[in-house]
Computed example of a mutant assay.
Amino acid sequence: MENTIDVILHPVRIRIIQALINQQITAQQLKELLPDIPQASLYRHLKKLVEAKIIHIVDEIPNRGTVEKVYSINDPNKAVIGPEELNKLSKEEHLGLFIKFMANLMGEYERYLSHEKFNLVNDGVSYRQTSMNLNEAEFAEFIKEMTAVYKKFSANKPQTGRRRRTLATIIIPNQTKEQ
């Protein structure tokens, strides 16, 4: 059986988890959100996420002789790799996880660019890197404020006029002479 990290970081399962944030949806609705994933693959990945207790079935709706399941994230904390699990990993395993993370971002960007009419400026697309000099207290304040902004806006439910956007954050500290 795959460990939780491998279950979460599969490219298709990452997309399913992202689609389920703050909403309960059926496999058919997921198929509409993720049209490039074959239906059989989608069901296989949903099953794996349910078995790993990362998502769960919140309702079953009878529909023309079948039962349509409604999925939701079981516990948002289970859809995240915790510090205990991360601390157990080797350097090579961390690098592998980072590569999977970056591959997922590249896939999302490629899907965006594959649309016939895309406009990076109008769509608010950006990628940038900045370095900041922060002491530990300033860094803690920065993380606290950034977390508050994430929480405020990631709680938004899908609705007309809202467009789903992906924001990825990577924080890599430089080594200092003191270390």
Rank of each mutant, 00 (worst) to 15 (best):
N22Q: 15
I54D: 01
K151C: 04
K88R: 11
E138H: 04
I25A: 13
I8S: 02
G96L: 05
P158G: 02
T147E: 14
S131F: 13
R162T: 08
A79K: 03
L95H: 12
S41G: 10
I37A: 08
I14M: 15
N174W: 08
E2D: 15
Q39M: 10
M102S: 06
S154D: 11
H115G: 05
T176C: 07
Q179N: 06
K151W: 01
M146R: 08
E178D: 10
N3Y: 06
E110A: 13
K78W: 02
R165W: 01
H115N: 09
K48F: 04
I14F: 13
I5Y: 04
V80W: 04
G124C: 01
H56E: 13
T130H: 12
K100M: 09
Q175I: 12
I170F: 09
Y43V: 07
K91L: 10
Y109N: 10
S154C: 07
Y43D: 09
Y43Q: 14
P11N: 11
L20G: 02
P158A: 05
T166P: 00
K157C: 02
K152W: 09
I17L: 12
P76D: 10
R111T: 08
I61N: 06
N3Q: 05
E60F: 02
S114F: 01
Q28R: 04
G82H: 06
S114A: 14
Q159G: 06
N135C: 03
A140Q: 12
R165C: 05
H56M: 05
R164E: 11
N135K: 00
E84G: 05
K177C: 05
A148D: 02
S154I: 03
F139I: 03
T4N: 12
A27R: 02
L97Q: 09
I37M: 06
V125S: 08
N3K: 05
N74H: 14
L95D: 14
I5T: 13
K157P: 00
N156R: 11
L113A: 08
Q24N: 10
E51D: 15
Y71W: 03
Q24L: 00
E68H: 04
A168N: 05
M146Y: 09
A40G: 05
V125Q: 10
A140N: 13
K151P: 01
